[in-house]
Amino acid sequence: MQAHSEQAIAVTAKTFVWVWVALLAMTVVEVLLAYFHVPLLLMLTALMGLSVIKGALIIAYFMHLKFERFSLFLTLFPMLIFCILLLFIFMPDSFRLMELRPR
């Protein structure tokens, strides 16, 4: 990963097409998944898992992060992921809201 953007130039267009194909394939899987009546947690995990993989592919190849210095990744992403995880602290209140709803 300790490479520079010159390496991005060296990447052939073929790589990008393959990434595109992979993204489309995963989208098809996601759409199909919506029609199997799988349990909620499994569904959520599968959908989000695929989305995260898709996102990672986009970031790594299309956005060239794979070809930037690794320190850029380390500078940007931990704080974003950390903040997003923090937002999930809201959820216990969401369940509480259900519990304390007027009947």
Partner: peptide
């Protein structure tokens, strides 16, 4: 390249909105 970053990001966001809003048609 900078404009490309923005465009891919817009694409990236859709990769999360699409499954969460459209495909999560599961009863919670």
């Amino acid at each position: 390249e900078v404009s490309g970053l923005y465009w891919h990001f817009v694409d990236l966001v859709w990769m999360f909105i699409f499954p969460l809003v459209y495909l999560m048609s599961v009863h919670i």
